[in-house]
Simulated scan of single mutants.
Amino acid sequence: MNTNYYAVIMAGGVGSRLWPISTEKYPKQFHDLLGTGESLLQKTFNRINQLIPVENILIATNKRYEQLVLEQLPEISNKQLLLEPAMRNTAPCILYAALKIHQQNKNAVMLVAPSDHWIENETEFIKNIETSFKACAKEDMLMTLGIQPNHPNTGYGYIQFEENSSEIKKVKTFTEKPNLEKATEFLASGDYLWNAGIFVWSVSSILDTFKKYLPKMVNILDNGNNVYNTDLEDDFIKNNYEKCEDISIDFGIMERSEKVHVLPVDFGWNDLGTWGSLYNKLSKDKYQNATVGANTIFKDANGNMISTQNGKKVVVQGLQDFIVVEKDDVLVICPRKEEQDIKQLRTEAKDAFDEKHV
């Protein structure tokens, strides 16, 4: 394995659109959502470990999930955890990781990957990451992986690229989640990809870019004291991290830099961000009903997604295209086409019920 290869797995999110399974106390990345025997975090770690040494994989998460991460990944040490003391979006977290890695290895090339994505073809994924690593080790570029869109999804960001004969394309524009009309337009044009939020760059390239576009953030997290990978790191982060601007890597860096490139990929990607995306991955009966956990009888019912505690007996009649999810003493029933509303329903439930349910 190449010792210059590093990875940061982003595992701090709450996964609010998969409520009530995903909660603040136990978010989706720690669940085995598809019944594989591994949580999404474990699956992501083992996939990346095919290319990157265990000791070079860092996990960025919230302080409250420290024990959950260490329980699920016994191979790693506390030193590999980047514990965010405050929620500040992805840019500060990635800068923190880059500074920590740079202190260890100035020639490092790093992958940034979410902990909660499903990837069908792991061999193809590893091949794509290796292609990206080699390109970024040679050239001063920021790379992202772009997924070939197969429908006009309004839940993803889109990347427009310049057509050329090389495998890696120059990025023209980033568009945050468009409306349906725009997404349909993008799909028809053929030069747009979904933004998977998977990035590769050399640490020197990303640090130079931060200095150019987010210099205040660099001044906050890099005060010249070389605290990273020492006993002073934890206290330094506790005292300074929350002073950082709350901004995503997309807005702060990727949409502004001139050196962004994209590698179009096709490895069976699914972000498992909603009940609908989970429904798409599950096996279904001849009436397109999908079930997790429950013993179900369906009568005159089709296109439903039912998720309950193991062995719960559920009888469904006359229901079409609904999501029905039970977790402990919470039951959520929602039309599949309105799955994006679950995030808002969770907020309302937080106000109406006890916080422990969300």
Rank of each mutant, 00 (worst) to 15 (best):
D222G: 01
N229D: 12
V218N: 08
D231I: 09
D222V: 04
N229M: 03
I206T: 11
L232H: 10
S204P: 09
L221C: 08
G224C: 00
F210Y: 15
F210G: 06
D231R: 08
D222L: 01
V203C: 14
D231N: 13
L232K: 15
S204Y: 07
Y213V: 08
N225Q: 14
L214H: 01
K211V: 11
L214R: 06
T209G: 06
I220H: 07
M217A: 04
K211S: 14
K211I: 09
L232W: 01
L214K: 12
N225A: 10
V227N: 04
N229R: 13
K211M: 10
T230Q: 02
S204H: 15
L221Y: 09
I206G: 02
T230S: 11
D222F: 04
K212P: 02
G224Q: 11
L214S: 01
K211Y: 05
I206P: 02
N225V: 00
L221Q: 05
F210E: 01
L232R: 12
Y213T: 05
N225S: 09
G224R: 11
N219Y: 01
Y228P: 03
D231P: 07
L207H: 04
K212I: 14
T209M: 09
S204I: 12
D231A: 14
N225D: 13
L232D: 09
N229H: 12
D222N: 13
K216D: 13
V203R: 03
V227A: 03
N226R: 09
D208H: 13
L214F: 06
Y228T: 02
T209C: 14
S204M: 13
V218F: 10
D222S: 07
K216N: 15
T209P: 04
I206S: 01
G224L: 05
P215R: 12
L207N: 03
V203A: 13
V218L: 10
I206Y: 02
N219R: 10
K216M: 10
I220Q: 04
D208R: 15
D231T: 09
N225M: 06
N219P: 00
I220G: 00
Y228V: 06
S204N: 15
Y228L: 01
P215L: 09
